[in-house]
C-alpha cells in the first residue's frame, strides 16, 4: 500500500514539475537553438544531482527517526497543502487553470523579443533560461522525492516513481517537440496535493508518537478525509462565486 502510494505520488509530482521545465526547454530549443537548450538543461541536472546527494543521504539521513518523520511530515505538508489550496481555488473557478502549454506559449513570446544568438557562438541567454527553468522546477522535485524517500522503505518506490516520470516526460518531449495541451494538469496537481498531504499528516503524527489504527492503510482514510474537506471547499467556493456573480 505505502509502496504504491509513494511511487504514484513521486511519479505524479515529478511528472508535473518536469512538464513545466520541459515547456521552458522546448521554447528555448525552438526559438533559439536546440543545442543550447540541452546544454542549459544538462548543466542544471548536474547541479541538481549534487543537491540531491546533500539533501538525501547527508542531511535527512543524519536525523533520529522520530525527528526525521516529523521534519519530513512538515515538509510534505508545506508542499502538499499548497498544491491542494491552489487546486481547490482552480477547481472552484477562483484562479485560472494550470497549463504547461500556456507557459510554453508565453515563454516563446518572451524569447522572440530577445536579440537572436550570434552564429558560431554559444547562446548564453538561451542556456541561462533553460538552466533556470530546469533548476527551479528541479529543486522542488528534489525536495519532494527526498522527503518521500527518506521514510523507512520509501527510497525504492520514490526513485521508481521519479525515474518512470523522468523517462516518460523526456520521451514525450523528444517525440512531440511540444508540451501536451490536453493533460488535466489542474486535477492531477490536486491529486498530488492530496497524496503529499496524506503522507505529511501520517508521518508527522508518527513523529509525535502516534500509532495509526490499521498501520499504513491509515494513509487511505487520512487521504479520504483530506479529499472530502477539499472537495466540499471547492463546492462552497464555487457556489459563493456564482451567487456573487449574479
Amino acid at each position: 500500500m505505502a509502496f504504491f502510494l509513494t511511487a504514484a505520488g513521486a511519479a505524479l509530482a515529478v511528472a508535473l514539475e518536469l512538464l513545466e521545465a520541459l515547456a521552458i526547454v522546448l521554447a528555448v530549443g525552438l526559438v533559439r537553438r536546440p543545442r543550447d537548450a540541452v546544454v542549459g538543461a544538462l548543466a542544471a541536472t548536474v547541479v541538481l544531482a549534487a543537491l540531491a546527494l546533500i539533501a538525501g543521504p547527508l542531511v535527512l539521513a543524519a536525523l533520529p527517526e522520530d525527528v526525521l518523520e516529523l521534519v519530513i511530515g512538515v515538509l510534505l505538508l508545506l508542499f502538499g497543502l499548497e498544491w491542494l489550496r491552489k487546486g481547490v481555488l482552480r477547481l472552484s473557478g477562483r484562479r485560472s487553470r494550470s497549463s504547461a502549454y500556456r507557459e510554453f506559449i508565453e515563454e516563446q513570446d518572451a524569447l522572440e523579443a530577445l536579440p537572436p544568438p550570434a552564429p558560431g557562438r554559444g547562446d548564453w541567454a538561451g542556456r541561462a533560461i533553460a538552466f533556470k527553468g530546469v533548476f527551479l522546477e528541479g529543486v522542488e522535485v528534489i525536495l519532494i522525492v527526498s522527503a518521500l524517500g527518506a521514510r523507512p522503505g520509501g527510497l525504492t518506490p520514490a526513485l521508481v516513481g521519479a525515474g518512470a516520470a523522468l523517462v516518460l516526460v523526456v520521451a514525450t518531449g523528444v517525440a512531440l517537440r511540444s508540451p501536451l495541451s490536453r493533460i488535466p494538469e489542474t486535477h492531477l496537481k490536486f491529486t498530488v496535493g492530496l497524496v503529499l498531504s496524506a503522507f505529511g499528516v501520517f508521518l508527522a503524527a508518527e513523529g509525535l508518537g502516534v500509532e495509526w489504527p490499521l498501520g499504513d492503510a491509515a494513509l487511505l482514510y487520512v487521504g479520504a478525509a483530506l479529499a472530502g474537506v477539499a472537495l466540499a471547499q471547492v463546492a462552497m467556493l464555487a457556489r459563493a462565486s456564482r451567487i456573487s456573480a449574479g
Partner: peptide
C-alpha cells in the same frame, strides 16, 4: 504520550491540519 494520544492523536493532528487548510482558503 502513553495514553489515548498514541492511538487517537493522529486524528487530532488531522483535524488541526484540515482547519489550517480551510483557513488558508
Amino acid at each position: 504520550t502513553d495514553g489515548w494520544w498514541e492511538s487517537s492523536g493522529g486524528f487530532v493532528l488531522l483535524g488541526l491540519v484540515l482547519a489550517a487548510l480551510v483557513a488558508s482558503l
